[in-house]
């Protein structure tokens, strides 16, 4: 059943996401783009742009990828799958009154995992960059977006300006 596979894939992505939604990018890249082949790297980048344009959590990227994989039903189960682990683990923690923060060794575990997320994301960005920057002008767009984002320009504005530049030269 492809629908079950989509749910299970995003369930695992949700289970291994710690911190912000950006931590999902390397996981979804590995599972949906490289392994399952539900979408191309170019389409994945388009999905990232769309997720940044819409309000709400960035993790909604799952909806886009699920839609590419299997239409509406795919979008629905991908979204359910990605948020189910939070509900289950959140419920278990509060139910069992286990407060990981009290265990000093756990602090180290979370710190190490978050540091690993930074490394994974760097790997993902390099792979995405290699496929989306075929020539110098595209590199200039990436550099411009980087500097604008560093100065706090809203992602929506950056995406819109880039889209406009793309329209002018297409």
């Amino acid at each position: 059943m492809p629908i079950l596979k989509i749910f299970w894939t995003f369930f695992r992505v949700g289970l291994f996401t710690f911190g912000g939604g950006y931590a999902m990018v390397p996981l979804i890249q590995e599972e949906a783009v490289d392994r399952a082949g539900w979408l191309t790297t170019a389409e994945f980048l388009d999905g990232i742009a769309i997720s940044q344009l819409t309000p709400g959590p960035f993790a909604i990227l799952a909806t886009f990828v699920g839609f590419k994989a299997a239409g509406f039903l795919g979008a629905l189960v991908a979204t359910l799958g990605i948020f189910t682990p939070s509900l289950l683990v959140g419920w278990a923690i509060l139910r069992l009154q286990v407060f990981f923060r009290g265990v000093s060794a756990m602090d180290r575990v979370w710190a190490a995992m978050r540091a690993a997320v930074v490394g994974l994301l760097l790997g993902a960005v390099i792979r995405l960059g290699l496929s989306s920057i075929p020539s110098l002008p595209f590199g200039a767009i990436a550099l411009g977006a980087f500097m604008a984002a560093r100065r706090g320009v809203s992602p929506i504005l950056i995406v819109l300006i880039a889209a406009l530049i793309g329209l002018m030269f297409s």
Binding site: D46, L128, A142, I158
Partner: peptide, 18 residues
């Protein structure tokens, strides 16, 4: 054409987030 230019912009924004 639009998305071809948006893709590198996304990479740039992600680098800033990183």
């Amino acid at each position: 054409g639009a998305f071809q230019a948006v893709a590198p912009a996304v990479v740039g924004m992600f680098s800033a987030i990183l």
